[in-house]
Every structure is written in C-alpha cells, then in structure tokens.
C-alpha cells in the first residue's frame, strides 16, 4: 500500500520506507536520519509549509528513539489539506538527527523539548538546550531506562 507522497518520492528516487497509514488515513513514512535534512527541504519545496507538530518518543527499552513530524500543506481554498507524518529513528547511544529548524522555524521549541526529554541531539539547531528541566539536570526523563532520582518535593521557592 503506497500513498501519494510515497509514490512521488519514489518517482524522484528518494529513499524512504512507508509505514502505512494512521487511523485518520494519514500517510506515515520512515526516513533515515542522514537523509532527513535534504528530504525536509524537498518536502518544503513540494509544498508542505506547515510543521503541525513535532514530538519524540522512545520506541522500546534499549531500542531506538523516534522523532515524529506532522506536516501539512496549507493552501488557499483547500478544506482537506494534504498531510503526512514523518518518523525518523535514531540509535539511542548516539541519537543525532538533523534539525529542521531552518526549514520550519516552529520546530525550535519542540526540538528543544525532544532534546530535553529524550536526549536526541538535533544537529544544526541554533540553541539546543534544556527547556523544561533545569539546565543542570542529568539524564533524559522520558527515556524508558531513566531512573528518577529520589528527590523530595521539588519546588522552585528559594
């Protein structure tokens, strides 16, 4: 089963793997981290001008980390915009994924959050540092192998 975008990518010789469709019928593609930056640019040129959401998750204990991008093609006079979901997987010992900040600026804080929670380092992100946790925090809280320190009552009062 191949969606439109997948067929288009195949036609232009771009490496990807189709992961099927999600429950809303939105096409899901897997793209290798090393291809991701160029394909992001291509997708932007193709017309996906809106990064609707970026998130990340830990696939399995000891497994890969995934960074997920939901792209939408916003145009005038279209009530069913084209959408696509891109997943990029990275190994957990050295998770490096090119940042799409320079393509879709709205990836800024979301990639920082993914970095903060899962430790995926986005190459070329302009200011990749922790956004939710204190900067001196150690560890990546949303990884499945994270062990929460035995803190008593965290609060910000001084």
């Amino acid at each position: 089963m191949q969606g439109r975008l997948s067929a288009w990518l195949v036609k232009h010789g771009l490496v990807h793997r189709s992961l099927g469709f999600d429950y809303q019928g939105i096409e899901t593609l897997q793209i290798k981290p090393e291809d991701w930056h160029s394909i992001a640019v291509i997708l932007y040129v193709y017309g996906y001008n809106y990064l609707r959401s970026q998130c990340a998750y830990d696939v399995a204990p000891g497994g890969l980390l995934a960074s997920v991008y939901h792209l939408t093609r916003i145009e005038y006079g279209v009530d069913q915009p084209e959408e696509v979901c891109i997943k990029v997987f990275a190994p957990r010992n050295n998770p490096r994924i090119p940042s799409v900040f320079w393509v879709w600026k709205s990836a800024d804080f979301q990639e920082r959050e993914s970095y903060d929670m899962l430790g995926i380092s986005y190459a070329n992100h302009p200011r990749l540092k922790r956004i939710l946790m204190p900067e001196s925090w150690i560890g990546w809280p949303l990884r499945k192998d994270y062990i929460a320190p035995n803190f008593y009552e965290i609060q910000d009062a001084h």
Binding site: P134, S136, I138, P149, Y152
Partner: peptide, 15 residues
C-alpha cells in the same frame, strides 16, 4: 556545583 547536586543532597537530608 550545580543545582542538581544540591538537590540530591537536600533530598537526602529530607529523607
């Protein structure tokens, strides 16, 4: 010398 370390110490004292 970071907040994290101080917090570890403080939590242990609380416990």
């Amino acid at each position: 010398l970071t907040e994290y370390t101080l917090r570890l110490i403080g939590s242990d004292v609380e416990h």
